[in-house]
Design a protein around this nucleic acid. Sequence first.
DNA 1: CAAGCCTCATGACAAATGTCATTATCTTCT
DNA 2: AGAAGATAATGACATTTGTCATGAGGCTTG
Lengths: 211, 211
Amino acid sequence: MKLILIDDDQLVVSALKMILEALPDLTVAATANDGSEALRLYKEHRPDVLLMDIRMEKTDGLEAAAQVLSQFPDARILLLTTFSDDEYIIKALRLGAKGYLLKQDYQNIAPAVRAVFSGQTVFGDEITSRIPELMAQAPSGFDYEAHGISERELEVIRLTAEGLSNREIASRLYLSEGTVRNYLSSILDKLELRDRTQLAVFYLRKQGGFL
Amino acid sequence: MKLILIDDDQLVVSALKMILEALPDLTVAATANDGSEALRLYKEHRPDVLLMDIRMEKTDGLEAAAQVLSQFPDARILLLTTFSDDEYIIKALRLGAKGYLLKQDYQNIAPAVRAVFSGQTVFGDEITSRIPELMAQAPSGFDYEAHGISERELEVIRLTAEGLSNREIASRLYLSEGTVRNYLSSILDKLELRDRTQLAVFYLRKQGGFL
DNA sequence: CAAGCCTCATGACAAATGTCATTATCTTCT
DNA sequence: AGAAGATAATGACATTTGTCATGAGGCTTG
């Protein structure tokens, strides 16, 4: 079973490599110290499992995982973390990472690698158990009212983030198209954005991208 | 502890009411048979916990929950389901529902209500355990190549979803602005979308809203 | 080699978008 | 009563965006 290891900390890489290569069925094909290497190495080695730290200096594990998955949707990626970084858990899940576990559990890493290889998804119990709270807290987070956004303006934002045109928004809210343009303009000004697309992106990111 | 019960099926409502009112500390303040009643009843009775079926004829439990939560963000809502409706689980989580469990577990309903009341979040084991797969299946899933989207086009999509203008995309990819416009036009045609904002929304929804 | 893609480019054009100035009504708070 | 703010509208304007026609060069595959 061919692996790639990526971790900021060369010590961790070495330690993991030693632990994993002690097992006859596991081979570490390559290692790196930053997520920016991930895609290149993946392309080159086509590993069975990619083991990667989630927090890294330049390109973090999530972004690297996104890059790899965009080209290899079936990539089996197991993300490691020192201590459960709440913010990352959900993103890792959504991304389609096949596993997420604590580095501390070093005795569990090899079994987890095998499980992921065989198609299973591995999320430590400490992690799955807190998903509900994390999910519930994540989506909110931006206080539009605090930024001087009025109720009506918020409606315009929501519809913009649905991909509607000014004309369509106007007709939905029974306004003139010009008025909608004015609202948009004022919103963009208040949120320091430049156009409706940036607004949609902004809103979806804050909201968590759904509904 | 004051409750409101909402379920499509009057039989279920009656049964639950009987079970719950048998307990001295629980009172069913009101019941209804459709989610459209939820907000009105909530306003009127201010229950400690709102128990609601997730699948209902007119207005489903999710939409009703969203309505209630938008006005009462601290509402404790426990959603019920007959059999784990995969698609609903994630939405319920994101919405901030405090609980989600199977009706079959009728012996667990009362304890769950008490747990939710005391501030806990209650998601049945069968549910939490499958969250990873659900999360992973939802976000990815769109095959751009199958829709005739080329590699270069995908890059344009990604940058568009960052909120960049044509000019900015052009400069990032070392292309002329016109070329970017052409790519955009072809992409919109292939994905049957109308403008860059719809494209950004589409992409973020498929990808899970980050990066 | 020819057909078919992907890449990249131009120019022209219509439509949508965002900005600005200005006006008006209504409510709320002081 | 007056100030402030939200709501709604208009017209004018420059810019951006999306479409279309057209063409060139490159790579791959039958």
